[in-house]
Amino acid sequence: MGPLARFENVGLRYGTDSEVLRDLSFRLDRGAFMFLTGPSGAGKTSLLKLLYLAERPTRGRLTLFGTDVGAAAPEELPALRRRVGVVFQDFRLLDHLNAFENVALPLRIAGVEEEEVAAHVEELLDWVGLSRKRTARPKTLSGGEQQRLAIARAVINRPDLLLCDEPTGNVDPEMAGRLLHLFQELNRLGTTVVVATHAMQLLPRIPAATIMRLERGRMQDPSAYLHGSDDRAAATLSAAEGV
């Protein structure tokens, strides 16, 4: 079983603009917890887009779940996408659906039976503390509630890979801490987690995490980000013990 994702000289450009990601070469191990940092415009969101297959590399090779995504047939991609959960910076909840239906959507897309959907969604809404808001529309929820809803939707079908774009962007420090704890919990259960954030103060809270720093589309200091990933057993153990 190879790494969950492997980047080999990956480049990405939008249209005819210059490359926003350049010469990325690294591997994302299964069960890893990775922080993606860097200044605004560095390419963090773009890198996540490659991982949730909203974009495909314009150069180099990206292998995800053992599939070369550049060479994969378009019909293969939806199944790969269903193995990835994403928490968007702006949540991207569906406003015509209530909280329950938003969280249920990935299961329904995957064709899960309704009984199972109901049980799973109730359990997860409970877990993120939104049981009493199950029929509320996203628009009527507070920022933090929307965020938790977005996280619930991202993890409902037990993704192999969880991607979070600035998940602590608009919540207070206490909520930020709780969310991090939640990601750690999922990581402990086997989900590979990538968190893109400006918030450098979060990094020390997960000592086992890999830290990758992007600047103008390039990986900075490749040796530094590798810290902690050479001993997966120790990393997983320390992650399990919490912050």
């Binding site: 909203a54 994403v86 990935p106 897309i109």
Partner: peptide, 16 residues
Amino acid sequence: REALGILHVLGAEERT
């Protein structure tokens, strides 16, 4: 457009 983009990322099939 927006909802379709979300369905796309959630892995909905084109034929659906």
